[in-house]
Design a protein around this nucleic acid. Structure first.
Lengths: 161, 161
DNA sequence: CACAACTCAATTGTGCACAACTAAAGGGTA
DNA sequence: TACCCTTTAGTTGTGCACAATTGAGTTGTG
């Protein structure tokens, strides 16, 4: 007698692997970025924040969090480190004193130039064609959207009778 | 005058998105697992370790690390927490005193039963077919292998003249 | 105006990832 | 046997992710 039926087990084992595959791939990307970003003295999440700022110029913490799906618990200390590195400046908004505006310094803006070559390095390392990269990106984006929709928001009212 | 050519910029921006897509997808999976594993009182990485042990029964720390691509810096404290929870038992090997064997306790083995339903919940939440899941898993696995090969091993001799 | 509800950032606490290092044990060779 | 090199866990320190909480500020409503 077995504790498990084999029929569901095969199916079930599969997505254990998909979650692990995603976890491992994410960490492998992390290692690669760590290497590529060493010269810029940025961590990978710091680089993501800089990308958002390079694109949008100036944003409140809240908006950065929306772009990156991160909350203040992660961003506050990260932004302090970027400020300590002289790359950004944080200033409490005059219009709404609750909000803190994050702005690039001259050094932060200048770093953009040196960061230009990073993505190409990464793309080469993936060994994928532009088409494959686009396709994978699309799938992952779609997957994230689906997963987010399927995950109950911990802040949501659990029983709104 | 622009600081950046538009031609490479389009190409370069793309894989900024792929790395972010992977990062976001990984974290979205994390949230989903956090919810699914709440009843089992396991974190997602702890669940991965348990999966390895359920499959292989008894392994030294080193082997667990090879399966999950994790080192002792991550595994040692994690395994201590699993031991404190009564799920595993750690014992220094008699044959090789450097090695620590990790074994499931009765409770750890019993948890397998309750964990059976987790993967199905997850698979459903992805909203993907079995075929799509398999395909994505394969792509990610391949991507990880490629990335690992492209990432210089930090422990490797940097200039072997 | 008063007050409740909400918003935003920051803080606290737990856990994971990883580099760098330490310590103990094992294995090989002069 | 003595010495060196390697292997294996563990420890330390830094940084990220996230839940829960705090506190200041804002908004809506009576």
């Amino acid at each position: 007698m077995r504790t498990t039926e084999t029929a569901p087990a095969e199916y079930l084992r599969l997505d254990n692997q998909i979650c692990f595959a995603l976890h491992a791939a994410s960490r492998a990307f992390g290692s690669l970025y760590r290497t590529a970003l060493r010269d810029l003295a940025l961590t990978y999440p710091q680089y993501l924040v800089m990308l958002v700022l390079w694109e949008h110029g100036e944003l409140p913490v809240k908006k950065i969090g929306e772009h990156l799906r991160l909350d203040s618990g992660t961003l506050s200390p990260l932004l302090k480190r970027l400020e300590a590195a002289g790359l950004v400046q944080r200033e409490r908004s005059a219009l709404d004193e609750r909000s803190v505006t994050v702005r690039l310094t001259t050094a932060g803006d200048a770093l953009r130039e040196r960061a230009q070559r990073v993505p190409e390095q990464i793309a080469t390392a993936t060994g994928l064609t532009l088409t494959d990269l686009t396709d994978l990106r699309t799938r992952l984006h779609h997957l994230t959207t689906t997963l987010d929709a399927a995950t109950p928001d911990p802040a949501a009212d659990p029983t709104p009778e």
